[in-house]
Computed example of a mutant assay.
Amino acid sequence: MSPRAVAVRAGLQRGWIEFRQSVTNGQDLWSVLFFPIIALIVMFLLRNNTVPGTGFSLGSQSIPGILGMNVVLNGMLALGLSLTMDREDGTLLRAKATPNGMVGYLTGKVLSRTGTAVVGLLVPLVPAVFLFDGLELGRVSSWLTLAWVLVLGLVALLPIGAVLGSLFNTAQSMGFVSLPTMLLIGLSGVFYPISAFPDWLQWVAQAFPLYWLALGLRSAMLPDALAAAELSESWRHLETVGVLGLWAVAGLLLAPVVLRRMARRESGSAVEGRRQKAMQRTM
């Protein structure tokens, strides 16, 4: 077995351990469950409201948006935050000092965050099947669509999280990413089709993977009649595959380069400097 394959295997083992720890730790589990639980409660209260121009429940229509936002929060942003935290405490420096350590480290992080994102997605999805009417989850094709959209969406978004985590030195500085991300979620029509937006804003939204992830999730879970509210009045599966695939390829090519450059700048003095700054902030 090649050294790189050994590192990947070690990374998979590390990722499984981190995932298992996150779902058995009360604080970590609550951070994953908090948003979907609150969102489900809000959508349940709105279940008797209808989407304008239709008789379809507004609560049911918003369920794919809750799932999409979970992928962003528990996948992309959580991976970036995890990277910055590991830079602060020296974990990344230790990985750098190990042969092929960065390969194993990144493999483990991607696996653990993928598992956490899937758990964060299943938490609202399972009760939603029983609480909300109108969701088209009784067909095999719906689950197949849900599966490939989620896989492509995670592959497209996780490298972005790795790049963001490489650009910021501290976990506090990653907080500056949250507000633009939430704004992008709103502009990308994660919770509602963007067909009512101005034309220029529609083009901006379609340039980002969040729009296509949300569109794909709606196509898997909502009746085909609601496609009339979307751009081109269709679910645009081919375009979804194409755009998410392009983002995935670009991210997979860019993320290792950015991570290697970031790892080269890591040193004991840099870690100690960040640790001293963190201590000063807590005093």
Rank of each mutant, 00 (worst) to 15 (best):
R94G: 08
M85G: 14
M43R: 11
E239W: 13
G11T: 07
N48K: 13
S57F: 02
E230H: 14
L144Y: 05
R260Y: 14
L92T: 07
L58F: 10
Q13L: 11
V155Q: 05
V129S: 04
D86A: 02
P64Q: 00
M182F: 15
L111F: 00
V32F: 02
V163Y: 02
A162Q: 04
P3D: 12
A10F: 12
A156D: 09
R274G: 03
G161M: 09
M182C: 10
F208P: 00
L184C: 11
Q27I: 07
L92V: 03
E233W: 09
E230S: 08
G101H: 10
Q27K: 02
T91R: 12
L125D: 02
W143K: 03
L83R: 04
P198N: 03
S173W: 06
I194T: 02
G153N: 05
W235G: 01
V6P: 09
I194A: 05
G245S: 05
P159F: 01
L226I: 05
P52I: 05
S31T: 11
T170E: 06
G175M: 03
L79T: 04
L238E: 13
T240S: 07
L45Y: 14
A39G: 03
R113E: 13
L40D: 05
W200I: 03
A278I: 14
A95Q: 12
V23G: 07
A214T: 11
V103R: 15
T114L: 06
L157A: 08
L67M: 08
L150V: 11
N49T: 15
Q276H: 12
L125H: 03
M262L: 11
G120R: 00
R9N: 08
W247G: 03
K277E: 07
L67P: 13
L184R: 10
L45E: 07
R20T: 11
L29M: 04
R261S: 07
M69N: 13
V257H: 13
L154H: 02
G165Y: 10
V257W: 15
G68T: 05
S57P: 14
I160C: 06
L135V: 01
D89K: 04
G216Y: 00
A207D: 02
K277F: 15
